[in-house]
């Protein structure tokens, strides 16, 4: 079972929900939490997991072989990303601009641009209490988030069985990394807050999730802080509201200290429990 947790806007409580939900479910079931917000992975600040394994994640980039190159510069023409430049009788490669499309390499008449792996980020596998936690972390300045997200998901597929509940913490927004993070989820939870900003960004996230034809539901975080417009919208659009996490100053304080909230606040735990029930029911195709 794959559950993706996403939100149109940052700061709505996506990481709070994913860490608390994962730890809660982990009390009785086999769970892996996967942080796919590879540009800003923050989940481990709350989990303090023990590192089990760390792997370098690579992307394939061309290496210029000056011995066989005839300096025809076809490669520069064949690259749509400006990742190659012909300058002073040399071909320069800019790894962070390369999308690993292989066009320069495979179309090179003399085979002078063999593709070779280069580190783009790291994947870390932690044990945090009862759960496994996997994090992808992109190097600063690297832009191919989509590729690292795909590799992180692949690692999870290879290392965990069908029975394990997999919770993906997606990056915020609606751009290509988000699509990669949620495209093979069985169910998507969209986290929002009951404010005009929250509602506006939720509508964008809903649009994205619908394009991908995903089953989804909404969790309203900081419930009670703003107005009812998010609820009205969900009812009108027939979107299930999976849970309403109350707006509590204590919760914000616990969060600021990097603590898990459900262990300390009963009302919060009750909502997490509710969300867990809803999600499992949805994944099994029955309404709770």
């Amino acid at each position: 079972m794959k559950i993706a947790i996403a939100s149109g806007k940052g700061g709505t409580g996506k990481t709070t929900l994913s860490t608390n939900l994962a730890m809660f479910l982990g009390e009785h079931e086999s769970v892996v939490l996967v942080d796919l917000d590879v540009e800003e992975p923050n989940s481990n600040l709350f989990l303090n997991g023990e590192l089990l394994k760390k792997e370098d994640k690579m992307k394939m980039i061309p290496r210029w072989d000056s011995t066989s190159c005839t300096l025809c510069a076809d490669c520069v023409q064949n690259c749509n990303f400006n990742a190659l430049l012909f300058i002073a009788n040399e071909i320069l490669v800019f790894p962070n601009l390369c999308h690993s499309c292989y066009a320069c390499s495979e179309l090179c008449p003399t085979g002078s641009l063999p593709m070779e792996p280069q580190k783009m980020g790291e994947l870390s596998h932690f044990i945090a209490g009862n759960i496994d936690f996997v994090e992808g972390r992109l190097n600063i300045g690297e832009e191919q988030a989509v590729s690292l997200i795909a590799q992180t998901k692949k690692y999870v597929d290879q290392h965990f069985d069908e029975e394990t509940i997999k919770i993906f913490d997606a990056p915020p927004g609606t751009s290509c990394p988000v699509i990669e993070a949620i495209k093979d989820a069985d169910f998507v939870i969209l986290v929002t807050e009951p404010t005009p900003f929250g509602l506006h960004d939720l509508t964008l996230a809903v649009e994205t999730t619908r394009i991908l034809k995903k089953n989804f539901g909404v969790v309203i975080n900081r419930y009670g802080m703003g107005n009812d417009d998010v609820e009205t919208y969900c009812h009108h659009e027939n979107i299930p509201i999976l849970g309403k996490i109350p707006h509590l100053v204590e919760a914000a304080k616990l969060y600021s200290e990097g603590k898990l909230i459900y262990k300390e606040i009963l009302a919060f735990k009750a909502e997490i429990q509710n969300i867990a029930l809803h999600v499992k029911a949805h994944c099994q195709g029955v309404m709770p």
Binding site: N78, N80, F81, H99, C101, A103, L107, C176, I211
Partner: peptide, 20 residues
């Protein structure tokens, strides 16, 4: 949604049916 616009397909298409 998956196309990154690298143009490799355009270059290998013999009948030139692909445009970017």
């Amino acid at each position: 949604l998956s196309c990154e616009g690298c143009g490799y397909c355009e270059k290998v298409c013999r009948p030139k049916a692909i445009s970017m």
